[in-house]
Simulated scan of single mutants.
Amino acid sequence: MIVQFGSGRIELVLGDITRQEVDAIVNAANSMLAVGGGVDGAIHDAGGPAILEELQRRYPDGCPTGSAVVTAAGNLAAQYVFHAVGPIWQGGGKKEREQLQSAYETCLALAEKHQCRSLAFPSISTGVYRYPVDLAAEVALRTVALKLESSTPLELVRFVLFDQGTFGCYARVLETMLV
Score class of each variant (00 low, 15 high):
Ala29Trp: 01
Ala29Pro: 05
Asn30Glu: 13
Ser31Gly: 01
Ser31Arg: 12
Ser31Val: 00
Leu33Lys: 09
Ala34Arg: 11
Gly37Gln: 15
Gly37Trp: 05
Gly37Tyr: 08
Gly38Cys: 13
Val39His: 11
Asp40Asn: 15
Asp40Ala: 12
Asp40Met: 06
Gly41Val: 05
Gly41Asn: 12
Ile43Phe: 06
Ile43Asn: 10
His44Pro: 01
His44Asp: 06
Asp45Phe: 08
Ala46Ile: 08
Ala46Gly: 06
Gly47Cys: 04
Gly47Glu: 05
Gly47Ile: 08
Pro49Ile: 00
Glu54Trp: 00
Glu54Tyr: 01
Leu55Pro: 05
Arg57Glu: 04
Arg57Ile: 00
Tyr59Ser: 03
Tyr59Asn: 03
Pro60Gln: 09
Asp61Gly: 06
Asp61Ala: 10
Gly62Lys: 07
Thr65Asp: 09
Ala68Gly: 07
Ala68Ile: 06
Val69Arg: 03
Thr71Asn: 07
Ala72Asn: 14
Ala72Asp: 14
Leu76Thr: 01
Ala78Ser: 14
Gln79Gly: 13
Gln79Phe: 03
Tyr80Pro: 09
Tyr80Ala: 09
His83Glu: 02
Pro87Trp: 02
Ile88Lys: 12
Ile88Gly: 00
Ile88Arg: 11
Trp89His: 03
Gly92Ile: 08
Gly93Thr: 11
Lys95Leu: 14
Lys95Gly: 13
Glu96Cys: 05
Arg97Thr: 10
Gln99Pro: 02
Leu100Met: 08
Leu100Ser: 13
Leu100Arg: 03
Gln101Asn: 08
Gln101Tyr: 00
Ser102Arg: 09
Ser102Asp: 12
Tyr104Ile: 05
Glu105Ala: 15
Glu105Trp: 00
Thr106Val: 15
Thr106His: 15
Thr106Pro: 04
Thr106Trp: 06
Ala109Ser: 13
Leu110Asn: 06
Ala111Arg: 00
Lys113Cys: 05
Cys116Leu: 05
Cys116Arg: 04
Ser118Ile: 04
Leu119Gln: 09
Leu119Asp: 07
Ala120Leu: 05
Phe121Ser: 03
Phe121Tyr: 06
Ser123His: 03
Ile124Arg: 09
Ile124Gln: 09
Ser125Arg: 06
Ser125Gln: 06
Thr126Lys: 04
Gly127Tyr: 14
Arg130Asp: 10
Arg130Thr: 13
Arg130Glu: 11
Tyr131Thr: 09
Tyr131Asp: 07
Tyr131Pro: 09
Asp134Val: 04
Asp134Arg: 02
Leu135Glu: 14
Ala136Gln: 05
Ala137Met: 02
Glu138Phe: 01
Glu138His: 11
Arg142Asp: 05
Thr143Asp: 04
Val144Gln: 02
Val144His: 01
Leu146Arg: 15
Lys147Cys: 07
Leu148Glu: 08
Glu149Asp: 08
Glu149Gly: 05
Glu149Arg: 15
Ser150His: 03
Ser151His: 10
Ser151Asp: 14
Ser151Gly: 00
Pro153Gly: 14
Leu154Met: 12
Leu156Phe: 01
Leu156Met: 13
Val157Asn: 07
Phe159Met: 11
Val160Met: 09
Leu161Arg: 11
Leu161Tyr: 11
Leu161Pro: 02
Phe162Thr: 04
Phe162Ser: 01
Asp163His: 13
Asp163Ile: 09
Gly165Thr: 13
Thr166Tyr: 02
Thr166Asn: 08
Thr166Trp: 02
Phe167Arg: 09
Phe167Trp: 14
Phe167Pro: 07
